[in-house]
Design a protein around this nucleic acid. Structure first.
Length: 949
RNA sequence: GCCCGAGUGGCGGAACUGGUAUACGCGCACGACUUAAAAUCGUGUCUCGCAAGGGAUGUGGGUUCGAUUCCCACCUCGGGCACCA
């Protein structure tokens, strides 16, 4: 009996595959018109950063997943491109160089060789002949070249920017290096420092980056994450005049319909206009102090969670509300961001929570201009109108509120009552609560928002309307007085848990009143069936809020405007281990791009990787490299010492794979036309925003230059979950729970590891590693090995049936990345075959074929043991024989009142009547039915019969 | 605070479009083989109950003949964003 020796088998086939190059993608023939006969398929994984720690078991998960898809595509007759390379610029290698003085080139080479050897031991069908490395000058030549194209089109520019500055290490830090406001390395408090930075104008592409998501097949969450990051928001720009002055304040708002409620204007402390107004501001010192203070604050302090809003009124100047034409105050406050919209807002405290909070703190006017209206307005008859209050009494511990449970109807409400005579809402609320509940209370908050409702009072046969003011009250006395019998008869007084209030049956208007009372904030919209109608808005009163948006923009001569949260991309790093930005600064000519023929600008060797005292890249110290001649005037010039972020090389690497050795272009047109776009790109969730967005941006830019044939780089994007350490915590060196795949390959074999990683849980979710469980995958592989001794002349029809079902399931599951259930169905098939006397050679081959993407080595070995001369990889994906999928006999479940009581086996061809006949003669059905009559019978074909008694 | 994802046996997880909840695997128990152990194979394994039967998919409601699946409210965990007007 042949024994299963994974070490021998796996090494053997890996060598043969490599030697024969069977995973090499075939390029279109140069110069000729002929394309490869097979259709192309481009599958892509995110190329790894070759760290010194080597691979851990989480790395291969996406590689195996896409390997299964790529291998299936090959069997389906595609010319598959499944490449890999190294995203090797970056901080860990540089920090290692600073610590040890070792050349990053050397470290990178060593690390990537180690990674390569590790990945190759897993039998992943990468086309290694296309291996690329972002730190290779032959590669980054083209990264620099693309940068020059950005520069040429004016999309790369220099700007003063705030960067994270560590005063102790004297170094600029990337955002990722700032942890809790402190330097990752030395723990010192990080400051903001202004520095000239290279910036790429990604915002010019914001609209297209958002819109073109419609045309690609990304997982919905991924599209959503991209859209949220881009942050498109549609609104209007409106100008506010300043009294007796020619300058105007331009604001951006998404709610022009609320303009009559704008009771003040706020400028960001950094706003230009403040300086222009300086001479007219009577409290300039106060304002200046505030501006200075905000500048000193770190980002963390400024955005701290519980920070109350602060600001200073600019006295001596006033703005004019273009809606109401009223004079309103101008404030400066740091809750308004300088770099979003116009850096100025119109504050509508009644309908914006932030403005509300600010207005309350500084006692500014809160003017309601949107009124929610519930119920159908009665136009024909005169309605009886009342002003009312809804009183909300909170218990002392704040967890419960006082509600009325109505006796005649099944609903709850707050305490509702009319405002009489010249009572204030507070007085009315206190009086009504006492009358209806017996509790003595004191009003503590009156909502500035009123809620309107219309209804027909049946008992009085009249239409009524109310305008209701929510009031919050607190208890004066814990013990209630006895209330009148009349009130007692109407409703019961109840303390209801706040959490349960909104789950109970209430009228929409009452629900909103309670919500407004409890939140004590603005009305920004409500999830109900109300109509939002304008009030206090002059000629727009009564107009629907949506309609008013457009009308009011016209009225105040504003213009519709779309803004984005997305900011331009800061592209400089003051680091050594990155692509040098190919620009020189000439004393005469200024910034001059390095001519394309002089690319690449290679990184010089240095002795010391420490950053300089002034926070510049270590490159600044290499005077031999820095001092150069200007390409334009040949005068003295200095090289740019900033380098690119490590996002640069990964923004276009998928293009290089199509033509990795090209020295004339980043990739040849013909190859690009044939291979792009990427058909399926799988990657980590951590890259769904930045990397994906950056590379889409670069791609669109190249598309506009007619250098790539499509406007989107990736047709389909999916993501995989992380593999966590045992116990569900992150795998990390410091926790000591890292599992090295080498060891697993050694003990169990690559096929077992592959099967286990795909079987352990849903591909898109995180799963905890369990070395205890991997044995199950090994047992399955060994069972497969034993099946070779079952191969005979025929297989049972039962086997044929289950085989064809499995082919179907595996085919579908692979497409949906449901690898775990695909393996589960193959486990069932293997057990079935093992329990039979024999399986036919043909059927056995089909099984090996569907298993081969998951476990390529053992299937290749078994395939060749059958005497097959060609690789299983060159065979074709088995077809489902539909005739075996149809069951002649079907199990029907009999339910009584939805509970399973019996099962019967019927012929698929049996008509409904015949099945029902059988049901009613079934003894256990009769037993359960007893003498109860059947009210209804539900028959679901091929599934069940439910009898309702 | 907002957005996204998830919550099912001792554990990882399965369940198509609302139709037999717990497939498959791990672990555990028992049995076979063995002088013995490991490995392997076989059987069993949600829970209460002697049984008939009842109860379980984070919690509480709802829709339905029927809900892990749909709706509402809430709780817990993971990830992302963070005053974006």
């Amino acid at each position: 009996m042949r024994l299963y020796d994974h070490k021998k088998i796996e090494k053997k086939w890996q060598n043969i595959w490599e030697k024969k190059g069977i995973y090499h993608a075939i390029d279109p023939v140069k110069g000729g018109a002929s394309k490869p006969k097979k259709p192309k398929y481009y599958s892509l994984i995110e190329f790894p950063y070759p760290s010194g720690d080597g691979l851990h078991v989480g790395h291969p998960r996406p590689y195996i997943g896409m390997d299964i898809i790529s291998r299936k595509r090959r069997l389906q007759g595609f010319n598959v491109l499944y490449p890999i390379g190294w995203d090797a610029f970056g901080l860990p290698t540089e920090n290692f160089a600073i610590k040890t003085g070792k050349d990053p080139r050397f470290v990178t080479k060593k690390n990537s060789e180690n990674f390569k050897q590790q990945i190759q031991s897993l039998g992943i069908s990468f086309d290694w002949s296309r291996e690329i490395n972002t730190t290779d000058p032959k590669y980054y030549k083209w990264t620099q070249w693309i940068f020059l194209q950005f520069l040429k089109k004016g999309l790369a520019y220099k700007a003063k920017m705030n960067i994270n500055w560590c005063p102790k290490d004297k170094i600029g830090l990337a955002n990722e290096e700032v942890i809790g406001g402190c330097c990752e390395r030395c723990g010192a408090q990080v400051e903001k420092r202004e520095k000239e930075q290279w910036v790429l104008a990604i915002t010019k592409y914001a609209e297209r980056l958002d819109k073109d998501l419609d045309g690609v097949d990304y997982l919905p969450q991924i599209k959503l994450a991209q859209r949220n990051w881009i942050g498109k928001s549609e609104g209007a720009e409106i100008e506010f005049k300043i009294t007796d002055y020619e300058l105007k304040i331009k604001v951006f708002t998404t709610r022009p319909d609320t303009i009559f409620g704008a009771t003040y204007v706020v400028l960001a402390p950094e706003h230009q206009l403040i300086n222009d107004l300086k001479s007219r501001i009577s409290n300039w010192t106060e304002a200046e102090d505030y501006i200075k203070k905000t500048k000193q604050e770190t980002e963390i302090e400024r955005t701290a969670e519980n920070k109350t809003k602060t600001g200073v009124e600019l006295k001596g100047v006033k703005a004019i509300n273009p809606g109401s034409k009223e004079e309103i105050p101008i404030w400066i406050a740091d809750y308004v961001l300088a770099n979003y919209g116009t850096g100025a807002i119109m504050a509508v405290p009644a309908h914006d929570e932030r403005d509300f909070e600010f207005a309350k703190k500084y006692n500014l006017e809160i003017k309601q201009v949107i009124q929610p209206i519930f119920g159908i307005e009665n136009k024909r008859k005169e309605a009886v109108h009342r002003n009312t209050i809804t009183g909300i009494v909170k218990s002392r511990d704040g967890k419960k509120i006082l509600m009325l449970k109505w006796k005649d109807y099944d609903w709850l409400s707050g305490v509702i009552g009319g405002i009489e005579g010249d009572e204030s809402p507070e007085q009315a609320a206190e009086r009504e609560v006492l009358e209806e509940t017996g509790y003595k209370t004191k009003a503590i908050f009156v909502s500035p928002i009123k809620v309107e409702s219309h209804f027909f009072a049946e008992h009085k046969n009249e239409w009524r309307s109310r305008i209701d003011t929510p009031v919050v009250l607190e208890l004066v006395d814990e013990k209630p007085e006895i209330i009148s019998e009349k009130e007692q008869a109407k409703h019961e007084v109840r303390w209801v848990d706040i959490k349960e209030v909104f789950a109970s049956t209430m009228f929409g208007n009452n629900k909103l009143a309670i919500e407004l009372a409890l939140s004590r904030s603005a009305y920004t919209g409500f999830n109900g069936d109300q109509r939002d109608s304008l009030i206090n808005s002059g000629r727009f009163d009564g107009m629907d809020s949506q309609k008013a948006k457009k009308e009011i923009i016209k009225f105040v001569e504003g213009k519709e405007k779309t803004t984005f949260k997305l900011r331009d991309w800061i592209f400089s790093r003051q680091r050594y281990w990155g692509e040098p930005i190919p620009v020189v600064r000439c004393e005469k000519c200024g910034l001059v791009p390095v001519p394309e023929k002089d690319l690449p600008v290679e990184l010089p060797k240095v002795k010391n990787y420490q950053p300089t005292d002034s926070g510049e890249s270590p490159l600044a110290n290499i005077s031999k490299w820095v001092n150069t001649k200007c390409p334009k005037c040949k005068g003295n010039a200095k090289r740019e010492t900033d380098t690119m972020p490590n996002w640069a090389g990964s923004s276009w690497y998928y293009l290089r794979y199509t033509d990795p050795k090209n020295s004339k272009e980043f990739a040849g047109k013909k190859n690009l036309k044939y291979w792009t776009p990427v058909d399926w790109y799988n990657g980590g969730n951590e890259h769904t925003t930045l990397h994906l967005l950056y590379s889409r941006f670069w791609h669109k830019f190249l598309y506009d230059l007619k250098l790539v044939p499509t406007s989107e780089p990736y047709m389909k994007r999916t993501s995989h979950g992380m593999i966590l350490g045992e116990g569900g915590v992150k795998m990390s060196k410091s926790l000591g729970n890292v599992i090295n795949p080498d060891e697993m390959v050694k003990i169990y074999g690559a096929d077992t590891l592959r099967i286990y990683e795909m079987f352990m849980g849903p591909f898109d979710q995180s799963v905890a590693w369990s070395t205890e469980s991997i044995i199950g995958a090994r047992r399955f592989i060994e069972k497969i090995w034993r099946l070779q001794f079952k191969v005979g002349k025929t297989s049972d029809s039962g086997i044929k049936k289950i085989l064809n079902k499995t082919i179907k399931k595996v085919s579908e599951d692979i497409e949906n990345m449901n690898f775990n259930t695909a393996i589960s169905s193959m486990m069932i098939l293997a057990t079935e075959i093992e329990n039979e006397k024999s399986v036919s050679r043909e059927d056995y081959k089909k099984f090996l074929q569907i298993l081969s993407p998951f476990a390529p080595h053992i299937t290749e070995e078994l395939w060749s043991l059958l005497g097959e001369k060609k690789s299983i990889n060159l065979s074709t994906w088995p077809k489902v024989d539909e005739t075996f999928l149809k069951d002649e006999e079907i199990k029907i479940v009999i339910q009584i009142n939805g509970k399973v009581r019996a099962q019967i086996i019927v012929k698929a061809s049996d008509p409904e009547e015949k099945i029902k006949e059988r049901v009613f003669s079934d003894p256990s059905v009769l037993k359960h039915l007893g003498n109860k009559g059947i009210k209804r019978t539900i028959y679901i074909k091929n599934r069940l019969i439910n009898l309702v008694v």
